[in-house]
């Protein structure tokens, strides 16, 4: 598997650290009910098909990436910078 980093280009999977589903980008507000934190930290849609997840380009530009990926075929259809998404 190879990921195309928006800054570095196409790179081997070994350069990247997988963190988890993009749910991690939707952090609840401080003081949110426990159920929201449980949902954020533990519960997942976990689709068999297209998903979006967070990868860190550890051995490259050190940017966090949102990767759109098919979990059944390993096809990668998009990689974007978390930083740009938030902007």
């Amino acid at each position: 598997m190879r990921l195309t980093c928006p800054l570095c280009g196409e790179r081997d999977r070994r350069e990247f650290y997988y963190y988890g589903a993009e749910d991690y980008l939707r952090r609840p507000a401080e003081g949110a009910p426990l159920a929201e934190w449980d949902n954020y930290l533990h519960l997942r849609d976990n689709p068999a098909g297209v998903t979006k997840d967070l990868w860190y380009h550890e051995a490259g530009c050190a940017q966090w990436l949102v990767v759109t990926r098919n979990t059944v075929t390993h096809e990668i259809s998009g990689v974007e910078l978390v930083a740009e998404r938030k902007a």
């Binding site: 598997m1 999977r13 997988y18 589903a21 997840d53 979990t71 059944v72 390993h74």
Partner: peptide, 9 residues
């Protein structure tokens, strides 16, 4: 990484 592919890399 999350996967249902039944094969690895």
């Amino acid at each position: 990484y999350a996967s249902y592919a039944a094969r690895g890399n």
